[in-house]
């Protein structure tokens, strides 16, 4: 921990930049995923639903399917994609929590 602390102080400025960039990348990812979230639920399931109903999938009117089935599947996928992408971001910016278990045993 002590040697870590030393390098930390030396690179304080770049550390702050790093955190800012991490946060920006995080917000960008959130924006993308929330656009999908909005599109499948409020978009396909509600606003566009009547128009989508003219198409048919698996025996459903498409708008109805999105509202009662499809959107839910997409929601599940979105969270797993988010968890995975964030793990990559954490690693890229070196802010991950992989080593936290070790810290615990040291303290």
């Amino acid at each position: 921990m002590n040697s870590d602390e030393h390098t930390k102080q030396a690179s304080d400025v770049s550390q702050i930049d790093n955190q800012k960039n991490y946060w920006k990348a995080n917000l960008k990812l959130l924006a993308k995923l929330l656009v999908v979230w909005f599109t499948v639920s409020f978009g396909c399931g509600i606003i566009l639903a009547d128009w989508l109903d003219q198409f048919s999938v698996f025996g459903f009117k498409l708008g109805f399917w999105f509202a009662q089935q499809g959107a839910i599947y997409v929601f599940v996928a979105l969270i797993f994609v988010y968890a995975r992408q964030m793990k990559l971001l954490d690693r890229q910016f070196g802010v991950g929590d992989e080593n936290d278990a070790d810290q615990e045993s040291q303290s």
């Binding site: 979230w37 509202a67 009662q68 959107a71 839910i72």
Partner: peptide, 29 residues
């Protein structure tokens, strides 16, 4: 409820699952 209101019941299905996306992305971590 869905059985009796049919399509309008989508509000519960969408609302009570879609909230988890917000929870996972915006609050829980």
């Amino acid at each position: 409820i869905i059985s009796f209101i049919g399509r309008d019941g989508s509000v519960y299905l969408l609302g009570w699952t879609g909230g988890y996306v917000l929870l996972a992305l915006l609050l829980a971590p």
